[in-house]
Amino acid sequence: MSEDQDKFIADVVEKALQGDMDAINNIEDRVTRSKAKAALVKAKREAKAAATEDTSKSEESKTEESAPVEKSLSEKVAACLNEKFPNSLESEDVNGHIQMKDKNWFEIAQYLRDNLDFLFDSLQCVTGYDFGENEDLEVRYNLHSMTHNHAIEIRIKTDRNNPKVPSVEQVWRIGDWFERETYDMYGIEFEGHSNMTRILCPEDWAGWPLRKDYETQESYHGIVVQKVKDGWE
């Protein structure tokens, strides 16, 4: 009897799992019906646990496989530039930023702005950098895409004694003032800029204030710039 009952319950549960709840509900014997329902709940729980185990396993294996394939944005851009503009990168090493040569910078900037994969439509900052005496100067561009919401940094080194970098004023209009400020503070000339003059300091200011070897001038229009400050510290 009990063997028959067990077989019957297993049958009904099987049916219920496939969507036919009437098979259980139509059992006339109350005890058998409750046994069948309990068996159904158990079966469902087991099925669920098995399913989650399956998915977690498959996810793990997925991340393990795809991790080395996934590239950072800088690497993608660098690879793309290397293909499109050979010899434009200073080094293949991409460590959070792209080190470039100044060759073709204007065309590359246009490409980065217009390429649908990157769409860097916003030049967020242009910074100068001084590596110290007898070392190079550097210009750093921070690009951001409003559409894709991603950003990269591009660095271009230039000679200290004759610092010249192509201007991107015509690519991003904000570059106008950014480049003038960089020129004002570091003396880096941006070739092709429509108005390469100082922006903050007076036009007749001598020297480039943010260079490491800058020396404060002694007087400006007859006004003495005090250098010796005794009895103050």
Binding site: C201, P209, Y214, T216, I223, V225, Q226, K229, W232, E233
Partner: peptide
Amino acid sequence: WQHGYHVLK
């Protein structure tokens, strides 16, 4: 006073 290269003292 000390380091402002552009400030009138």
